[in-house]
Simulated assay, not measured.
Amino acid sequence: MEENKTKQKYALVTGGSRGIGRAVCIQLAKDLDYSLLINYNGNREAAQQTLKEVKANGGKGEIIQFDVTDAEAVNKAFDLWHEANKNAIIEVIINNAGITKDGLFMWMKPEDWHNVIDTSLNGFYNVTNALIQKLLVNKYGRVINMVSVSGLKGTAGQVNYSAAKGAVIGATKALAQEVAKRNITVNAVAPGFIKSDMTAALDEKELKKMIPANRFGEAEEVANLVSFLASSRASYITGEVININGGIYS
């Protein structure tokens, strides 16, 4: 236990280079004493910008490149990272990486089905499975999965995304029960319409009519919730799906 106190503690955010992922990295830097491990797949420049903003807010961290859908690449990246950081532990895993390929199911191409599920569901497996054993040995950890209102109520034109996020919700609840005795919590955060690259093409004026709060949410609002769940203050919350959607959930 003594050795654990001297370890450098990290929080990993997949898809941390932009949008909600970036906002989460910045909020964690402000609120918690973790070094940030900012994952990106293709946009190194955006990841560097996130790191810059983390440092500007008094935090510290580094970037790490891998595609969450590629199990071999994920394991290799973590093996190399652990080799170079022997006195460090990743205590917080935030599975934020996700993509959308919207379209009506009858016209959905196989690749649009598989790519969306690969990123959200298999990405959750590849990253969490690679690190969960270390959390169990550590006897402390936080796993936070970014899901969606689509995974709870289903959204027309998003059968693939709804399926992927719904599956992660089920996995969240099951894994929470497996690891709770080791002081590891596993929760999901389900945003509704949040201003980001992913929602930029949507008709905000029209859509906000169906949101009781009458507006899209801000990435920072989601980040505040994630930061709380990543903290020791949320130690008795596990297996939960927390909605953050301005009252839209029905």
Rank of each mutant, 00 (worst) to 15 (best):
L136E: 14
V116R: 03
N41E: 08
W113F: 05
P191K: 09
A163T: 15
K76Q: 15
A163G: 04
E218Q: 15
I63L: 07
D197E: 15
A56T: 14
A234D: 06
A73D: 10
L135A: 00
I89Q: 10
D70F: 03
G123Q: 06
G98P: 10
C25A: 13
A230Y: 07
Q65L: 08
P212A: 01
N57H: 13
Q27F: 00
Y140A: 08
N245M: 09
Y161W: 03
K86A: 10
E62V: 02
W81V: 08
I242E: 07
Q133K: 12
I89F: 08
G154V: 00
K165F: 14
Q27T: 02
K55Y: 01
Y140D: 02
K209T: 13
I99R: 12
A180G: 13
P191S: 05
F105K: 04
S150P: 03
K209I: 00
N183P: 05
E83M: 11
A167M: 10
A163N: 03
E53F: 04
I117K: 02
E72N: 15
K5E: 00
P212V: 06
Y140V: 02
L36C: 04
N75M: 02
A56C: 12
E91A: 03
D112W: 14
K7E: 00
A46H: 09
A84G: 13
S17V: 05
I144T: 12
I244R: 15
W113A: 07
K153E: 15
D31C: 03
L80A: 11
K181N: 10
A88H: 11
A164I: 03
A156C: 05
